[in-house]
Write a protein that binds this DNA or RNA. Structure first.
Lengths: 125, 125, 125, 125
DNA sequence: GTGGTCTAGACCACC
DNA sequence: GTGGTCTAGACCACT
C-alpha cells in the first residue's frame, strides 16, 4: 500500500503523508474508510510508531483524516479537506513559478514544460 | 548585490549560491570577472565566512566559478558551465513533473500553469 | 433518545453522561423513572456495554441516578443532585473565565459574547 | 517566564504553547524577538526537549513563531498571526456556547456570567 | 550550539 | 488493541 524511499531526502513522515494524501485524493481510500493503525503501518514499514503518529497527526490537522481514540484513524469527508487543498494549491503554484524561472535561466525550453503538462493532464483521460 | 531571506527555509549557503548563479547566468557577472572575496561578502551579508566558503566551493564544483589561490574567485567561461547546466535542467524538469502532478491531484487547472509559463517566458522578451 | 457524535473528541462515556444528565435536568426523565439497562442502551448505540456501565457509574456518583441491583437504574430525586450541581457550576464558571480571557486576548468583542448569552438565555422563555 | 502545572490535565506541550501564545499576544515578546532555544527551555522546565520541540513546531504552524535552523526561534510579525487568530476565535465562541448552555441547564444565572465578563473586559482599561 | 528527525520503550485513557 | 503523550538518547545539517 505504501513504500518508503530511503534515497529520498525528505523525512519519512513526509513521505508517508504524501503517499496517504495521494491515496485519499485519488479516491483509493474513501471517506470514512479506516486506515491502518499507527502500530500496524509502522511495523509494515519497519519504522518507529512515533513517525507514523506524526504523519497521521499532521494529516489530521490538514483535514485529510480524523481519529477516534481506541478505534483507529479514518478518512475525512471531502468537505473537510477543501480549505487545506486551496492553500496547498497556492503554495504549489508559487513553487512552480520558482522552478520555471530557474529553468528559463538555464536555457530550458518552453516546449519541454508543455510536454510535461500534456503528459500529466492528458494521461488518464 | 545579494540579499538573504531569513523566512526562507533553505540554508543560507543555498540562497547565496542561487543568487550568484543567477547573476552569472544573466550575464551581470561576466566570464573572468572577479567576484567578492569570501570575507568581504560574508561581512556585507553579516553571516559567517564559512557559509560563503561553502557556497563558493559548490559553485566551483558546478563549474560556475574558479578560484586562484590568494588571488580571489572568478567567473568561469561559459563552456565550463554547460555540463552542470544540463544536469540541473533535468533535475528541474523532474521536480516540475512532481509539482504539476500534485497540483492536478488537488484540482489545479491547466490554465493556471500556462498563465505562469506565459508570465515568465513572455516577460522580458 | 441519545445520539453519539464520533467527530467529537470527548470519550463516548462522557457524551453519554452529558446527554443523560441533560434529559434528567430538563425533566424529560423524572425522579424514579427507570432508565434503559446497560445492555439495552449499549446495543441501541452499538457500543460496548462497558462504556455505558462507566457512564452510569459516574452519574450515580454525581447523584443523578441510583441503581437497584438486578432491577435497573432509576433517576434520583432532585435533592440528591443539588450538591453535584453547585460544584459543577463552579467548575463551569472557572472554565468560562479562561475561555473569555483568551477570547479577549485574541481581540474577541464583548458583544459577540453577549449575543451568545442572549441566544441561550432568551431562547425558550 | 513559563511554569508548568502538573495538576493540569492537559499535555505539557499544550501548556507550553498556551503560555507562550499569551506572552506573544500580550506583547511581552515582540515580533522578531528571539525565544529560548528548545534545549534551554526544556532544561529550565525539567522536561524533555522533544516536548518543547512539539510545542514550538505547532506554534510555528499557527503563525506565532518562525524558526531559523542553527539560529533559534523568533516571534512572528503580527500579520502572520491574523489568520489563525480568527479561526481560534470562532472555536472559542463555539466552546463558550456549550459551556453557557450547560451552565443554564444547571441553574446558573445570567448575572454570574456578566460579572465574569465585566471582570475581564473592564479590568485593565 | 541550534533546529529537525528518528528510534526505542514506556505509560495512560479509552473501548 | 488503539490513539496520544512523554522520556531518553542518538544523529544530521547548518552556522
Amino acid at each position: 500500500m505504501i513504500t518508503l524511499d530511503y534515497a529520498d531526502k525528505r523525512p519519512l513522515y513526509e513521505q508517508t503523508k504524501e503517499k496517504l494524501r495521494e491515496l485519499i485524493i485519488n479516491g483509493v481510500l474513501k471517506p470514512h474508510d479506516r486506515i491502518p493503525s499507527v502500530r500496524e503501518l509502522a511495523s509494515k514499514l519497519s519504522i518507529n510508531p512515533n513517525t507514523i503518529q506524526k504523519a497521521y497527526h499532521e494529516l489530521e490537522q490538514e483535514g485529510y483524516i480524523y481519529s477516534k481514540t481506541a478505534k483507529g484513524n479514518y478518512v475525512s469527508p471531502i468537505e473537510d479537506r477543501a480549505q487545506y487543498g486551496s492553500e496547498r494549491c497556492a503554495e504549489l503554484l508559487k513553487k512552480l513559478e520558482n522552478t520555471i524561472s530557474e529553468l528559463k535561466l538555464l536555457g530550458g525550453k518552453k516546449d519541454d514544460i508543455n510536454e510535461i503538462i500534456a503528459k500529466i493532464y492528458d494521461k488518464g483521460e
